[in-house]
Design a protein around this nucleic acid. Structure first.
Length: 312
DNA sequence: ACCAGTCAAGGAAGC
DNA sequence: GCTTCCTTGACTGGT
């Protein structure tokens, strides 16, 4: 089992590697030529930071979840920008090549978690259309940097819609899912929710999965908030069985205070894997510092038996 | 140099 | 049918 870093390495940030963004408000307030130059510089910066962070994960033997905001405005309709429009398009292509090479050299498992505003089951055609554009774009980015079109590089998100019965929502989701690019479909996985009226592991595995055959991501904290009658052991096993390859699950702990869904700065409790083999993203505020601290607390965490010993 | 406010998204909840 | 809240990190603009 490998721990996973989510998007940002605070260690690299302290060294000056941080992500940049650009709002539409700002973009549209500038002359287009100037706006495109700034946007291109920021996207290139984000790719350099991503490459650096993948190397950082390799040094630590972690998996990596890319930021969901690497390409501000690129799928934003009103801005009407594509990568080809950016004056530094060639440099961006070179950086794609660099990332591809880094992944080839290091074999770091790379995943994505598109934002909660993506909703494939939405009743709004416009929202669905935007979601498809966004998911397809990220999948094409994954293609471009040489990632496999399967669940080794999963793109995880939530159903994030409650309009209708569970079956109706699933059908709506699935008919829109079928409109995604083929490679994108092959990477999509769905995670259990933490809110009581949203999708629990039980509902995802009993209702959603049989119709879609899409793997279910187990999130420890969400399950704790919304167990819907299943123990952690039952739920994680049910999710595990929906994956055709080594799963990528999520771990977090509650921040102190009155909102149990808020994520803590550091993780202190042992992660029970119930004898299952999977990777696990640390959704913990202190990011790489939290993973390192956790690995100091639990030196055997992530320790994998060599194949010869595991076979015995 | 610093800090408070702004931005972007979809959906739920409360008037 | 409005507004507000949720969430996040970086940008923006004023001091």
């Amino acid at each position: 089992m490998k721990p996973g870093l989510c998007c940002i390495s605070l260690t690299l940030k302290e060294q000056g590697y941080s992500f940049q963004t650009m709002t539409y408000k700002r973009f549209s307030s500038l002359p287009r030529e100037e706006a495109l130059e700034i946007l291109g510089d920021r996207i290139l910066n984000n790719l350099v930071v991503t490459n650096k962070t993948i190397e950082f994960c390799h040094e630590n033997n972690w998996v990596y979840r890319v930021s969901s905001d690497l390409f501000p405005l690129i799928t934003y309709d009103e801005a009407n920008v594509s990568l080809e429009d950016l004056p530094n398009h060639d440099e961006i292509q070179d950086e794609f090549d660099n990332i591809e090479q880094t992944i080839k050299n290091t074999n770091v498992r790379v995943s994505a978690h598109p934002s909660e505003y993506n909703s494939l089951a939405s009743l709004s055609d416009k929202v669905v259309e935007k979601t498809i554009t966004e998911l397809n774009f990220y999948s094409s980015f994954f293609d471009r940097i040489g990632l496999p079109a399967d669940y080794r590089s999963p793109m995880n998100f939530h159903i994030h819609n409650n309009n209708g019965t569970r079956e109706e929502i699933t059908q709506r989701f699935y008919s829109n899912f079928k409109k995604l690019d083929e490679n994108c479909q092959k990477r999509i996985v769905i995670e259990n929710d933490d809110k009581l009226n949203c999708w629990s592991v039980k509902e995802l595995v009993d209702i959603f999965h049989p119709i879609t055959n899409i793997p279910i991501t187990f999130d420890y904290l969400h399950h704790k908030c919304h167990p819907n009658g299943l123990t952690e052991c039952e739920a994680i096993n049910m999710c595990y069985d929906t994956w055709q390859t080594k799963p990528l699950f999520h771990y977090s702990e509650s921040r102190e205070g009155n909102n149990p869904r808020a994520h803590a700065d550091y993780a202190y409790n042992p992660i029970e894997n119930y004898g299952l083999e999977f990777d696990c993203d640390f959704e913990i505020k202190a990011k790489c510092h939290a993973i390192k601290k956790y690995q100091e607390l639990y030196p055997l965490f992530g320790y994998c038996l060599p194949p010869t010993m595991a076979a015995n």
